[in-house]
């Protein structure tokens, strides 16, 4: 089962873009081997929150604990060093490069002559894909442009997890995929959690979320309005939280419970 100390814990994170308060006083946590879904309407602050975690931009207030220790994540490299990897919605793959080249982009292995060491990179890529049971890719030397949407998503996820990462954030991984390909990616998400990784899954598709998530964090208008256990909640309850949830804590007011209508 999942461990007790959260792998990553955010406390009272606030962030504003000029006069727009994108996040106010948000708490968020995730444990090893857990799939935490992050849901909310457009503009609820999901992307802003993961950008804070990934070090794309800073936050105004609050603190981030990683494995129980306070950390400051100053940039994507720092996040990578901690073991946090993000798979963005637009995948960030280079279409003109092949699978191996994409997997190692920016972290190529080289010898003393500054030459690329292709054989070990190719071998490691094959092993990584195999360990994730990504078996539909015909050749890892074909350009990414020739892959299907599900295969591309698989490559992007494999690229993120191959560096012994501990936390993988997936930003709407199934948004542009068909039924079979969505299946493929959801299976991959489950396997990642089974291997002990913490997975943050951002999605608008509650059906997908209820299939793979352990817990669900709901954001609304830049505030967190509740964390739900998948086993004890219903889609209806989550939808209500997304559209009309009340903050679990408001400055000056004692702890409030989300008001649930039926």
């Amino acid at each position: 089962m999942v461990s007790e100390t959260p792998l990553l814990q955010l406390r009272g994170i606030s962030k504003s873009y000029g006069s727009v308060q994108a996040l106010s006083d948000v708490d968020f946590e995730i444990r090893d081997g857990e799939v935490m879904a992050l849901v909310g309407d457009n503009g609820a602050g999901k992307t802003t929150l993961i950008k804070c975690i990934a070090g794309i931009h800073g936050y105004d207030q609050g603190e981030i604990l990683f494995e129980g220790n306070p950390v400051s994540i100053s940039g994507p490299k720092e996040a990578g060093r901690l073991g946090i990897e993000v798979v963005y919605q637009d995948l960030a793959l280079c279409d003109n490069l092949d699978v191996v080249q994409n997997m190692y982009l920016g972290r190529e292995e080289r010898d003393w002559l500054w030459r690329l060491k292709e054989p070990p990179m190719e071998q490691h890529t094959a092993e990584t894909l195999k360990s994730l049971a990504v078996t539909t890719i015909r050749s890892i030397r074909q350009p990414v442009a020739s892959l299907s949407g599900g295969q591309r998503q698989s490559v992007a996820v494999a690229k993120a997890v191959q560096w012994n990462s501990k936390l993988v954030i997936l930003d709407e991984p199934t948004a542009a995929l068909g039924v079979a390909q969505t299946r493929q990616v959801l299976d991959l998400v489950k396997r990642l959690a089974d291997q002990g990784l913490a997975v943050v899954l951002i999605s608008h598709n509650l059906h997908d979320i209820f299939e793979v998530a352990t817990r669900i964090t709901v954001l609304r208008l830049g505030r967190d309005v509740g964390v739900y256990e998948r086993a004890t909640t219903t889609q209806q309850e989550v939808v209500h939280a997304i559209t009309a949830g009340m903050p679990t804590k408001v400055a000056g007011i004692a702890e409030t419970v989300p008001e649930l209508a039926t």
Binding site: P76, D90, L93, C94, N96, L97, Q101, E108
Partner: peptide, 24 residues
Amino acid sequence: KRTPFGRHVYAVGGNAEAARRAGI
């Protein structure tokens, strides 16, 4: 074709944003 620099040239030409995110 054989150096990281060349690989990065292709990457920037293919998808500059992806290259940037990969730390290039």
